[in-house]
Write a protein that binds this DNA or RNA. Structure first.
Lengths: 342, 342
DNA sequence: CTGAAAGCGCTAACAA
DNA sequence: TTGTTAGCGCTTTCAG
């Protein structure tokens, strides 16, 4: 029984007429927490099923002021970390009855984020997640005024009103630094991400401090901008000469793959025999035997859970202070790093 | 000047009062194609800027019946082909003034798609894109009744009312088949995707027919379900024994990487010297030197363009017939396939 | 428990 | 060109 009455748009009024009740009775039957007698519920549900009625989420949102939509701005989808995050975030939100309005942003163009955010706000989202994207402080002010909670995912900002969920990037960089020191390497290279990103800055500072704690220093540094091709060029620049490093920390896995590819297939070097490489994120590909990449794992499940939690709390109570979570990750040692040759 | 008047929700009425005009005058200024005198426009824009007013997209949508939202259901985000498609689709839609309401679906659970689609419809989207997901015919009937255009992306269905954009999967499989034949291989293996997927069926049939056209036949077949771990197991099952194939066609690149990893690092085989491997999709990773995978390229830009086109046409004119595009791809020969040893 | 009535913020006739 | 008016489909008082 599909009752295909070919009604273009079935409204609660039509259901009411068919069920012989008032329109508001229909509304009550479909509103959680409203009361109706079993008899009415039965009549209404029957009529609704016959007509194929479903409440119009937009009309409901207008009244209640709750759209049940969360805006998600994302960039760098070619880095496997983000599709994974988007998938889990979307699922977690769906479980809570929220839906995701998604926007792509180019990470380096701040202007872009501005306009995209305005459009999101126009759609009356109840909250916004910015993944791998920063925002101007004037924009964060506007969101605060609108009372719309914003959570930065895998990025930080100085503005303390801004909620942010990150891994301890400094700690992760530090761990890689001491790992290299323990392996006995002394000529060390670093390939940076996009310089404007807090993750890049924190990981580099942690790495430098980790090296320093063992009396070591960086001897080479290039910039890869979180882009495969840039990272490849950076690796060649760093390692094509005679005084190449013994170990390189690459600011994320996505670039580390480019570096390993360049070292192995362009320069004919072996990893880890000739040179050690470590990344950051621990995306699934890092575990594939072709790379078997040592990396610092971001606790993506906990990051997503914290993000959702931060959102829900501030939606319920907008006066709550910003939620700033800095989670611990874990060094995953694999075959791309090895002790210095005796 | 940010005019932070801390108004939680600025409405057109407030703008009207401040500008000394009627509420509908404000509406006209913000409605494309409505007329207002330069003087009114100036007054209204000024007041709006001071108040930080932006039209409520939902209220507008209720009146006009156009939400400017497209629902996107997607699965298999770990296969790089889909994040790439999502990114381009989202961008193309944004350019046309549409926004994307995104949902994750588990590809094997048809039930799941059903409920997710209902939720999407509740939000009054103007169209739906199903990427790597099929739907029951009863569901497609419902969408037809609602007058909501649905486009299948990278998947086909028998129902002719359903728009679908695909690559010529049969042709792609055929091309791989003849490629193997030309290389002189005779013991041939195939690793299938999820058996319920039209892409899997079409690629396999094309491949078999391609082989047949050269007098060849399949000598081994396993199922990888589009999942890395399953594909790995399939490869081991197929190649661990003594009578392994000389060449394997894997139904998509994502699984082909698993197969190459298993052959090289578990079985100690060389690709292509000991065994040739080809995939399908030509995702960016296929071009990375670690894999250098021969593949059949899907014309993703044209697929996205066709999808958007199909959507826009049927939104404008719902009576238009379904749009079924089957695009030609291209065989990309790389280093993972080589001639049979003399 | 139920129906009538009042809007949510906006656009689209319709007069003026 | 403008203001007035009538809703879009729904939830939510408020009487009954």
């Amino acid at each position: 029984m599909d009752g295909g009455l070919m009604a273009r748009k079935v409204t609660s009024l039509q259901v009411a007429e068919r069920a012989g009740v008032s329109q508001s009775a229909v509304s009550r039957v479909f509103t959680r927490g409203a009361s109706a007698s079993p008899a009415t519920v039965a009549k209404v549900k029957k009529a609704a099923a016959e007509l194929g009625y479903r409440p119009n989420a937009m009309a409901r949102a207008m009244i209640t002021g709750k759209s049940r939509m969360i805006g998600l701005v994302v960039a760098y989808l070619e880095n496997q970390f983000y599709p994974e995050a988007v998938e889990r975030l979307s699922n977690a939100l769906q479980e809570r009855g929220y839906h995701v309005l998604m926007f792509m942003a180019s990470p380096t163009a701040g202007d872009d984020v501005q306009s995209v955010m305005e459009e999101i706000l126009d759609h009356q989202v109840e909250g916004i997640v910015l993944a791998s994207v920063s925002m101007s402080s004037s924009l964060s002010t506007r969101c605060a005024e609108h009372g719309i909670p914003v959570v930065l995912f895998n990025r930080e900002q100085d503005d303390p009103r801004m909620s942010a969920v990150t891994t301890n990037n400094y700690g992760g960089g530090f761990a890689i630094g001491t790992h290299f020191a323990e392996l006995g390497h002394s000529r060390i290279g670093y390939i940076a991400g996009f310089e404007g990103a807090s993750t890049q800055r924190d990981r580099e500072q942690g790495f430098r401090d980790g090296l320093a704690s063992a009396g070591l220093d960086l001897s080479a540094r290039e910039v890869g901008n979180f882009i495969y091709a840039d990272a490849r060029a950076a690796a060649l620049e760093m390692c094509a000469g005679t005084d190449r490093p013994e170990a390189i920390f690459v600011c994320n896995d996505h670039m580390a793959f480019a570096v390993m590819d360049a070292l192995r297939f362009k320069l004919g070097l072996r990893v880890p025999e000739d040179i050690s490489v470590a990344g950051f994120d621990d995306v699934p590909i890092a575990a594939w035997p072709a790379y078997d990449l040592t990396s610092y794992r971001q606790p993506i499940n906990r990051m997503v859970a914290q993000t959702v939690e931060a959102l829900m709390q501030r939606i319920e109570d907008p006066t709550r202070p910003a939620h700033r979570a800095k989670l611990e990750g874990a060094l995953i040692q694999r075959g791309s790093t090895a002790p210095a040759k005796g």
